[in-house]
Protein backbone atom coordinates (compact mmCIF):
# COMPACT_ATOMS: atom_id res chain seq x y z
CA UNK A 1 0.00 0.00 0.00
CA UNK A 2 2.81 2.38 1.01
CA UNK A 3 4.55 1.67 -2.25
CA UNK A 4 1.41 2.28 -4.29
CA UNK A 5 1.02 5.66 -2.60
CA UNK A 6 4.58 6.63 -3.51
CA UNK A 7 4.16 5.37 -7.05
CA UNK A 8 0.98 7.40 -7.55
CA UNK A 9 2.52 10.49 -6.03
CA UNK A 10 5.79 10.05 -7.96
CA UNK A 11 5.01 12.35 -10.93
CA UNK A 12 3.91 15.10 -8.54
CA UNK A 13 6.92 14.55 -6.29
CA UNK A 14 9.33 14.74 -9.20
CA UNK A 15 7.63 17.88 -10.47
CA UNK A 16 7.75 19.51 -7.04
CA UNK A 17 11.40 18.60 -6.56
CA UNK A 18 12.54 19.87 -9.96
CA UNK A 19 10.28 22.89 -10.55
CA UNK A 20 9.39 24.12 -7.07
CA UNK A 21 11.83 23.03 -4.38
CA UNK A 22 14.92 23.32 -6.55
CA UNK A 23 14.11 26.79 -7.97
CA UNK A 24 13.48 28.12 -4.45
CA UNK A 25 16.85 26.84 -3.24
CA UNK A 26 18.50 27.87 -6.49
CA UNK A 27 17.14 31.37 -5.96
CA UNK A 28 18.99 31.59 -2.65
CA UNK A 29 22.13 30.35 -4.38
CA UNK A 30 21.80 32.95 -7.16
CA UNK A 31 21.31 35.66 -4.57
CA UNK A 32 24.87 35.17 -3.30
CA UNK A 33 26.48 35.14 -6.77
CA UNK A 34 27.24 37.75 -9.39
CA UNK A 35 24.78 36.20 -11.89
CA UNK A 36 23.81 38.52 -14.75
CA UNK A 37 22.79 38.31 -18.39
CA UNK A 38 26.33 37.72 -19.61
CA UNK A 39 27.75 34.98 -17.36
CA UNK A 40 24.49 33.02 -17.07
CA UNK A 41 25.07 30.60 -19.92
CA UNK A 42 28.80 30.10 -19.37
CA UNK A 43 27.89 29.24 -15.78
CA UNK A 44 31.01 30.88 -14.32
CA UNK A 45 29.19 32.44 -11.39
CA UNK A 46 31.30 33.94 -8.62
CA UNK A 47 30.35 33.66 -4.99
CA UNK A 48 30.09 37.20 -3.65
CA UNK A 49 28.54 36.64 -0.24
CA UNK A 50 25.83 38.97 0.97
CA UNK A 51 26.79 41.79 -1.41
CA UNK A 52 23.52 41.55 -3.39
CA UNK A 53 21.48 41.79 -0.22
CA UNK A 54 23.55 44.83 0.71
CA UNK A 55 22.81 46.41 -2.65
CA UNK A 56 19.07 45.81 -2.36
CA UNK A 57 18.83 46.88 1.28
CA UNK A 58 20.79 50.06 0.55
CA UNK A 59 18.41 50.94 -2.29
CA UNK A 60 15.85 53.49 -1.05
CA UNK A 61 13.56 52.29 -3.86
CA UNK A 62 13.35 48.88 -2.17
CA UNK A 63 12.08 50.40 1.09
CA UNK A 64 9.74 52.64 -0.85
CA UNK A 65 8.36 49.50 -2.56
CA UNK A 66 7.89 47.84 0.79
CA UNK A 67 5.87 50.84 1.94
CA UNK A 68 3.77 50.77 -1.25
CA UNK A 69 3.16 47.04 -0.77
CA UNK A 70 2.02 47.79 2.76
CA UNK A 71 -0.38 50.53 1.63
CA UNK A 72 -1.76 48.44 -1.23
CA UNK A 73 -2.20 45.31 0.89
CA UNK A 74 -3.77 46.98 3.92
CA UNK A 75 -6.16 49.14 1.87
CA UNK A 76 -7.34 46.20 -0.24
CA UNK A 77 -7.54 43.89 2.75
CA UNK A 78 -9.69 46.18 4.89
CA UNK A 79 -12.00 47.33 2.11
CA UNK A 80 -12.56 43.94 0.51
CA UNK A 81 -13.27 42.43 3.91
CA UNK A 82 -15.78 45.14 4.90
CA UNK A 83 -17.59 45.22 1.55
CA UNK A 84 -17.35 41.44 1.20
CA UNK A 85 -18.88 40.97 4.63
CA UNK A 86 -21.70 43.44 3.92
CA UNK A 87 -22.52 41.66 0.68
CA UNK A 88 -22.33 38.25 2.34
CA UNK A 89 -24.88 39.39 4.95
CA UNK A 90 -27.06 40.75 2.18
CA UNK A 91 -26.98 37.47 0.25
CA UNK A 92 -27.36 35.21 3.30
CA UNK A 93 -31.14 34.81 3.12
CA UNK A 94 -32.71 33.49 -0.08
CA UNK A 95 -34.54 35.92 -2.38
CA UNK A 96 -35.49 35.68 -6.04
CA UNK A 97 -32.36 35.85 -8.18
CA UNK A 98 -29.94 35.30 -5.29
CA UNK A 99 -28.04 32.42 -6.95
CA UNK A 100 -27.60 33.87 -10.45
CA UNK A 101 -26.63 37.32 -9.11
CA UNK A 102 -24.01 35.82 -6.83
CA UNK A 103 -22.56 33.96 -9.82
CA UNK A 104 -22.51 37.20 -11.85
CA UNK A 105 -20.48 38.90 -9.13
CA UNK A 106 -17.80 36.24 -9.56
CA UNK A 107 -17.10 37.33 -13.12
CA UNK A 108 -14.49 39.78 -11.82
CA UNK A 109 -12.72 36.99 -10.06
CA UNK A 110 -12.69 34.63 -13.02
CA UNK A 111 -11.49 37.10 -15.70
CA UNK A 112 -7.75 37.14 -16.48
CA UNK A 113 -6.19 40.01 -14.46
CA UNK A 114 -4.59 41.40 -17.60
CA UNK A 115 -8.06 41.83 -19.15
CA UNK A 116 -9.39 43.47 -15.98
CA UNK A 117 -6.40 45.81 -15.86
CA UNK A 118 -6.81 46.83 -19.51
CA UNK A 119 -10.49 47.61 -19.03
CA UNK A 120 -9.78 49.63 -15.89
CA UNK A 121 -7.03 51.55 -17.68
CA UNK A 122 -9.67 52.69 -20.12
CA UNK A 123 -12.27 53.39 -17.41
CA UNK A 124 -9.70 55.52 -15.55
CA UNK A 125 -8.58 57.40 -18.68
CA UNK A 126 -8.18 61.13 -17.96
CA UNK A 127 -9.84 62.70 -21.00
CA UNK A 128 -12.25 60.05 -22.24
CA UNK A 129 -12.59 57.72 -19.27
CA UNK A 130 -16.12 56.89 -18.26
CA UNK A 131 -15.37 57.25 -14.54
CA UNK A 132 -14.38 60.92 -14.88
CA UNK A 133 -17.53 61.41 -16.96
CA UNK A 134 -19.77 59.92 -14.25
CA UNK A 135 -18.04 61.89 -11.50
CA UNK A 136 -18.39 65.14 -13.42
CA UNK A 137 -22.05 64.44 -14.14
CA UNK A 138 -22.70 63.79 -10.47
CA UNK A 139 -20.90 67.01 -9.61
CA UNK A 140 -18.21 65.26 -7.58
CA UNK A 141 -15.34 66.80 -9.52
CA UNK A 142 -14.92 70.02 -11.49
CA UNK A 143 -12.15 68.92 -13.75
CA UNK A 144 -10.98 65.49 -14.88
CA UNK A 145 -8.84 63.56 -12.39
CA UNK A 146 -5.56 62.45 -13.94
CA UNK A 147 -5.96 59.03 -12.35
CA UNK A 148 -3.08 57.05 -13.80
CA UNK A 149 -0.67 59.88 -14.48
CA UNK A 150 -0.10 61.06 -10.93
CA UNK A 151 1.20 59.05 -8.00
CA UNK A 152 -1.48 59.12 -5.32
CA UNK A 153 -4.45 58.60 -7.62
CA UNK A 154 -2.63 55.86 -9.55
CA UNK A 155 -2.36 53.91 -6.30
CA UNK A 156 -6.07 54.51 -5.60
CA UNK A 157 -6.91 53.31 -9.11
CA UNK A 158 -5.01 50.02 -8.78
CA UNK A 159 -6.57 49.49 -5.36
CA UNK A 160 -10.05 49.98 -6.83
CA UNK A 161 -9.30 47.58 -9.69
CA UNK A 162 -8.01 45.00 -7.24
CA UNK A 163 -11.09 45.42 -5.05
CA UNK A 164 -13.21 44.59 -8.08
CA UNK A 165 -11.51 41.19 -8.02
CA UNK A 166 -11.20 40.79 -4.25
CA UNK A 167 -14.64 41.79 -2.97
CA UNK A 168 -16.63 38.98 -4.64
CA UNK A 169 -14.03 36.47 -3.56
CA UNK A 170 -14.23 37.60 0.07
CA UNK A 171 -18.02 37.60 -0.16
CA UNK A 172 -18.05 34.02 -1.36
CA UNK A 173 -15.78 32.79 1.43
CA UNK A 174 -17.60 34.74 4.15
CA UNK A 175 -20.98 33.65 2.83
CA UNK A 176 -20.06 29.98 3.10
CA UNK A 177 -19.08 30.76 6.70
CA UNK A 178 -22.39 32.51 7.39
CA UNK A 179 -24.30 29.51 6.11
CA UNK A 180 -22.73 27.41 8.85
CA UNK A 181 -24.34 29.51 11.61
CA UNK A 182 -27.46 27.87 12.93
CA UNK A 183 -30.65 29.86 12.16
CA UNK A 184 -32.16 28.91 15.51
CA UNK A 185 -29.64 31.20 17.24
CA UNK A 186 -31.13 34.21 15.48
CA UNK A 187 -34.68 33.04 16.19
CA UNK A 188 -33.89 32.71 19.87
CA UNK A 189 -32.26 36.14 19.90
CA UNK A 190 -35.18 37.87 18.22
CA UNK A 191 -37.63 36.20 20.64
CA UNK A 192 -35.52 37.76 23.39
CA UNK A 193 -35.92 41.11 21.64
CA UNK A 194 -32.33 41.52 20.45
CA UNK A 195 -32.00 44.15 17.74
CA UNK A 196 -30.44 43.29 14.38
CA UNK A 197 -27.28 45.11 15.37
CA UNK A 198 -27.09 43.21 18.67
CA UNK A 199 -27.60 39.96 16.76
CA UNK A 200 -24.71 40.88 14.50
CA UNK A 201 -22.30 41.90 17.27
CA UNK A 202 -23.23 39.07 19.66
CA UNK A 203 -23.89 36.14 17.33
CA UNK A 204 -22.67 36.65 13.77
CA UNK A 205 -19.36 38.37 14.34
CA UNK A 206 -17.97 36.16 17.14
CA UNK A 207 -19.04 32.98 15.35
CA UNK A 208 -17.41 34.18 12.16
CA UNK A 209 -14.04 34.76 13.86
CA UNK A 210 -12.32 31.60 12.58
CA UNK A 211 -13.60 32.15 9.03
CA UNK A 212 -12.61 35.82 9.22
CA UNK A 213 -9.10 34.95 10.29
CA UNK A 214 -8.55 32.56 7.42
CA UNK A 215 -10.12 35.00 4.92
CA UNK A 216 -7.84 37.80 6.13
CA UNK A 217 -4.77 35.57 6.13
CA UNK A 218 -5.47 34.44 2.57
CA UNK A 219 -6.25 38.06 1.72
CA UNK A 220 -2.86 39.32 2.88
CA UNK A 221 -1.05 36.64 0.91
CA UNK A 222 -3.09 37.01 -2.28
CA UNK A 223 -2.96 40.81 -2.28
CA UNK A 224 0.71 41.04 -1.44
CA UNK A 225 1.63 38.92 -4.45
CA UNK A 226 -0.46 40.80 -7.06
CA UNK A 227 1.74 41.48 -10.07
CA UNK A 228 -0.15 41.21 -13.37
CA UNK A 229 -2.93 43.64 -12.48
CA UNK A 230 -0.62 46.42 -11.32
CA UNK A 231 1.97 45.86 -14.02
CA UNK A 232 -0.60 46.02 -16.82
CA UNK A 233 -2.32 49.09 -15.38
CA UNK A 234 0.71 51.24 -14.54
CA UNK A 235 4.01 49.37 -15.17
CA UNK A 236 4.80 50.44 -11.61
CA UNK A 237 4.56 54.11 -12.50
CA UNK A 238 4.13 57.00 -12.70
CA UNK A 239 7.62 57.52 -11.24
CA UNK A 240 7.56 54.33 -9.17
CA UNK A 241 4.40 55.31 -7.33
CA UNK A 242 2.84 51.83 -7.74
CA UNK A 243 6.06 49.77 -7.66
CA UNK A 244 5.07 47.21 -5.03
CA UNK A 245 7.65 44.56 -4.07
CA UNK A 246 6.74 42.06 -6.82
CA UNK A 247 7.00 44.86 -9.42
CA UNK A 248 10.29 45.99 -7.90
CA UNK A 249 11.64 42.43 -8.12
CA UNK A 250 10.57 42.18 -11.75
CA UNK A 251 12.05 45.51 -12.78
CA UNK A 252 15.29 44.86 -10.86
CA UNK A 253 15.71 41.46 -12.53
CA UNK A 254 14.44 41.86 -16.04
CA UNK A 255 15.20 45.43 -17.02
CA UNK A 256 18.92 45.16 -16.27
CA UNK A 257 19.29 41.36 -16.24
CA UNK A 258 20.99 41.53 -12.86
CA UNK A 259 19.92 38.09 -11.68
CA UNK A 260 22.02 38.15 -8.55
CA UNK A 261 20.39 41.29 -7.12
CA UNK A 262 17.06 40.20 -8.58
CA UNK A 263 17.32 36.91 -6.70
CA UNK A 264 18.16 38.80 -3.52
CA UNK A 265 15.13 41.06 -4.01
CA UNK A 266 12.99 37.99 -4.68
CA UNK A 267 14.31 36.26 -1.55
CA UNK A 268 13.47 39.33 0.54
CA UNK A 269 10.02 39.47 -1.06
CA UNK A 270 9.48 35.84 -0.03
CA UNK A 271 9.99 36.46 3.69
CA UNK A 272 6.45 37.63 4.42
CA UNK A 273 4.55 34.90 2.52
CA UNK A 274 6.83 32.20 3.93
CA UNK A 275 6.27 33.46 7.47
CA UNK A 276 2.51 33.66 6.98
CA UNK A 277 2.36 30.25 5.35
CA UNK A 278 3.58 28.80 8.64
CA UNK A 279 0.44 30.09 10.37
CA UNK A 280 -1.70 29.10 7.44
CA UNK A 281 -0.51 25.47 7.40
CA UNK A 282 -0.93 25.36 11.16
CA UNK A 283 -4.52 26.61 10.94
CA UNK A 284 -5.30 24.00 8.30
CA UNK A 285 -3.88 21.23 10.47
CA UNK A 286 -6.06 22.35 13.35
CA UNK A 287 -9.09 22.29 11.09
CA UNK A 288 -8.21 18.75 10.08
CA UNK A 289 -8.33 17.47 13.66
Amino acid sequence: MRRLGLALAAPALIYIAVFLAFPLLYNFYLSVTDAQGANLISGSLQFIGAANYGTVLADPEFWHSGLLSLIFTVACLVLQYVFGFALALFFRKPFPGNGPIRALLLVGWILPPVVTATVFRWVFDTDYGVLNHFMTTLGLIDEPVRWLSQGATAMIAVIIANLWVGIPFNMLLLLSGLHLIDDSLYEAASVDGASRWRQFTNITYPLMAPVSISVLLLGVINTYKVFDLIYTMTRGGPVNSTTTLPIYTYLETFSFFQFGTGAAASALTLILPLALSYFYVKSLNEEER
Partner: peptide, 16 residues
Protein backbone atom coordinates in the same frame (compact mmCIF):
# COMPACT_ATOMS: atom_id res chain seq x y z
CA UNK B 1 3.06 26.74 0.95
CA UNK B 2 3.97 27.06 -2.72
CA UNK B 3 0.47 28.21 -3.54
CA UNK B 4 1.02 31.26 -1.37
CA UNK B 5 4.26 32.45 -2.98
CA UNK B 6 4.39 35.31 -5.52
CA UNK B 7 4.82 33.97 -9.06
CA UNK B 8 7.46 36.59 -9.78
CA UNK B 9 9.69 35.21 -7.01
CA UNK B 10 9.62 31.75 -8.61
CA UNK B 11 10.04 33.10 -12.12
CA UNK B 12 13.47 34.60 -11.37
CA UNK B 13 15.18 31.22 -10.72
CA UNK B 14 12.97 29.52 -13.35
CA UNK B 15 14.23 31.99 -15.95
CA UNK B 16 17.83 31.18 -15.10
Amino acid sequence: VVQLLPAIAISVPLFV
